[in-house]
């Protein structure tokens, strides 16, 4: 069993909104972080909802730890830690009360570990959660998600709204978590710089469709953007073009192999690219 999470042709439609999650397939290997990227409304949260069974899928399969998770599979949910964006817990609770509730829900709840995270994150245990700042509530949610010794963390926009310093702290926590080879993280975000720092794989969805899933290093080190003039663009082999976008007199062309492009198109400027630029070209650019 190589993958902690596997999605095969996952589909879900909402007739009232015309949104359809269309045949999403990707997998998350053990010991790795998968960055799940897409613009707002792309379908990231719907996909996560289908994974966690908070939303009923129309078709396809979702396997967690090699098994499809039903409502009765509480043993699987023992091994999953979840963090949603925003307020995960009732504001009238204190962190101490949260801990007591969680201790009654998770067999492996580790009170000492939770206390350690509270100290490390400098969170007051007796203060009501509604008086926490946004950053503090996210830290608390991450502490709670980690304190029952999960193997899989599912983070839905867990770093959005945090300042860069705090985000960096959280990314360090995530990297430490995946030091264990049977631990993995599905990190949904539209902050691509975070994913570039920590992700091993990037999966990109756009308007409910899977656009790309690839190792991050391939995207950062192999993918490239050719800055073409119109005449140069016409000379480019169509099969080399993943996507292109016209910007005034320049046409940016996304290619899968930058070295090959440099060798093949000597008069064209070929730049290294970022996940952010790849996402923009795939989302807003045109396909051949």
């Amino acid at each position: 069993m190589e993958n902690i999470l596997e999605l095969q042709n996952l589909s879900k439609s909402y007739p009232k909104s015309d949104f359809t999650l269309d045949q999403i397939s990707f997998s998350l290997p053990y010991g790795s972080i998968l960055g799940f990227v897409g613009e707002n409304g792309a379908g990231k949260t719907t996909t996560i909802g289908c994974i966690l069974n908070t939303i009923r899928k129309d078709s396809g399969t979702v396997k967690l730890f090699g098994k499809e998770m039903g409502d009765g599979d509480t043993d699987i949910r023992e091994k999953i830690g979840v963090v949603y964006d925003g307020d995960n817990f009732p504001g009238f609770w204190t962190a101490g009360q949260l801990s007591k509730v969680m201790a009654g829900l998770f067999k492996n709840w580790d009170q000492a570990l939770f206390q350690k995270y509270m100290e490390d994150f400098q969170l007051p245990v007796k203060q009501k959660i509604k008086h926490y700042s946004k950053g503090m509530t996210m830290k608390l949610a991450i502490a709670a998600a980690l304190s029952h010794h999960p193997q899989l963390l599912i983070l839905d926009e867990a770093t959005s709204g945090l300042d860069p310093v705090m985000r960096d702290d959280m990314l360090d926590v995530f990297l430490e978590f995946v030091q264990e080879e049977n631990h993995s993280i599905l990190l949904s975000s539209h902050i691509t710089s975070d994913l570039e720092k920590v992700a091993d794989y990037i999966t990109f969805i756009h308007k409910g469709r899977l656009i790309l899933t690839a190792p991050k290093d391939d995207l950062v080190y192999r993918y490239a953007v050719m800055r073409c003039r119109e005449s140069q663009f016409q000379a480019v082999d169509r099969e080399d073009i993943l996507a292109y976008r016209k910007r005034d007199t320049q046409i940016d062309v996304l290619v899968a192999d930058g070295r090959e492009a440099k060798r093949k198109y000597k008069d064209v400027v070929v730049d290294h690219t970022s996940v952010d630029e790849i996402m923009l070209l795939l989302a807003k650019g045109e396909r051949v």
């Binding site: 966690l52 069974n53 908070t54 409502d71 009765g72 509480t74 043993d75 949910r77 023992e78 999953i80 979840v82 949603y84 925003g86 307020d87 995960n88 817990f89 009732p90 504001g91 009238f92 969680m102 829900l105 998770f106 067999k107 599912i154």
Partner: peptide, 20 residues
């Protein structure tokens, strides 16, 4: 009703308890 003010109602579905 208090649960609906946050994502706790949704979060609760991800913890090891049955909906029943």
């Amino acid at each position: 009703r208090k649960e609906s003010a946050t994502k706790w109602g949704k979060y609760k579905l991800t913890v090891p308890v049955r909906k029943r």
